[in-house]
Design a protein around this nucleic acid. Structure first.
Lengths: 205, 205
DNA sequence: ACATTGCTGTAGTGTTTACTCCAGTTGGAA
DNA sequence: TTCCAACTGGAGTAAACACTACAGCAATGT
């Protein structure tokens, strides 16, 4: 067995993925041509096909890697201390920062998610899966932060929280760096907490 | 001058646009091939090029028409009566219904908006323009519904309202018809009003 | 009757696409 | 030294791509 996989190989793989994430973020799924990726990373097409089965496989790998990058950027909030508002705001701030630092995952993912082609690309499936997992985690956190809420309310709250995050992200993608994503996410956190309060008081009655 | 423009012409144009909106909504900008549009609408490529200058022109026309369709579906709320919450909710409900009935505009527009290619397609420009106009109208309405707010607050509120709408729309596009968009928009309207109240009380102090 | 206009049908153009074949090259294991 | 596995390079293929040239036809204005 080889203990080192030959240094050049993994580096080339990274270079290919780097080039692909850039081009796919610019031009979408169909617009990402192997020739363009090859030109950008400096490796011939045959190398790309040595590392990846086909174009679909390449894009799925890009989604996976950019998800990991984003996950690392999120750095889940420390411990469960403070008021619900403080905790939710801390979480929102973290997510906002991570989306500024590592926007590729959500941008590419949303592009793929909005497409509805007959034969779904694997990249889309992967995105929806990891997104589902992330959503579930948020649901869990919401359940502990707002213990008064019933399951349905928690789900609704999570849906709204995620949708708001998506929308604010899109807003920043459209309007550029001038948008203060962290500030908007703080407002969002506040409103989500309002909603939680409203839901709790309703279910008590 | 001809009083009738030759019936077949306008009908063909519509058929081409219908086919294009369907394919573009499935496969994005690059994925929309003239051959596929031609096959779907039953007209040869030369007819498409007689009606439209090139592919870019075609997609821009699709955006324009789907915007008009959507605008017609929105049917702006009647008159300025009721509490702010009632008025905002009525508006949100209208928008939600229109997005269910005519989702093409926003779906296609968001797909184009998320792409950032070096030479921007005209369709993207058109989308961002009409979106800007729509946003401005919402800003005006917000200004009259919440007269206590200063300009900055109204802008922030509008941004948040639009972003929430985008995000909830994306959520429905991903999770399908099971999502009750109207209900989510009602919640959204409520939270936006909360935010307005919070902002007003802060500026008074 | 005749030319004009609006549109369709056929048959292309050259370029780009995803993907393949296979002959190198190179570093490490035996 | 020999050998193999891990890659790279270049050359190539068939299909799909956006787009064009142009002939033909049916209705209309004169």
């Amino acid at each position: 067995m080889t203990r080192k996989k030959r240094a050049n190989g993994v580096e080339s793989r990274q270079r290919i993925l780097d080039a692909t994430v850039e081009i796919a973020g610019e031009r979408g799924y169909e617009g990402t041509s192997i020739a363009a990726v090859s030109a950008k990373c400096g490796l011939p097409a045959s190398s790309i096909y040595w590392h990846f089965k086909d174009k679909d496989d390449l894009i799925a790998a890009v989604i996976e890697r950019s998800f990991e990058t984003w996950l690392a950027a999120v750095e889940l909030p420390g411990e469960e201390t403070g008021t619900p508002l403080e905790r939710v705001t801390a979480m929102a701030t973290n997510v906002a920062k991570s989306l500024v630092d590592a926007p590729d995952f959500l941008r590419l993912g949303l592009m793929l998610a909005l497409e509805r082609r007959p034969t779904e690309p694997r990249g889309r499936t992967v995105f929806l899966q990891v997104r589902d997992i992330a959503t579930q985690k948020i649901t869990e956190v919401a359940g502990t932060v707002f213990p008064d809420l019933d399951e349905d309310a928690v789900r609704t709250l999570t849906t709204y929280a995620v949708a708001g995050a998506d929308g604010l992200f899109v807003h920043r993608e459209i309007h550029g760096d001038a948008v203060d994503l962290v500030a908007m996410f703080e407002l969002h956190a506040q409103l989500v907490c309002d909603a939680a309060g409203r839901m709790a008081s309703r279910s008590k009655r």
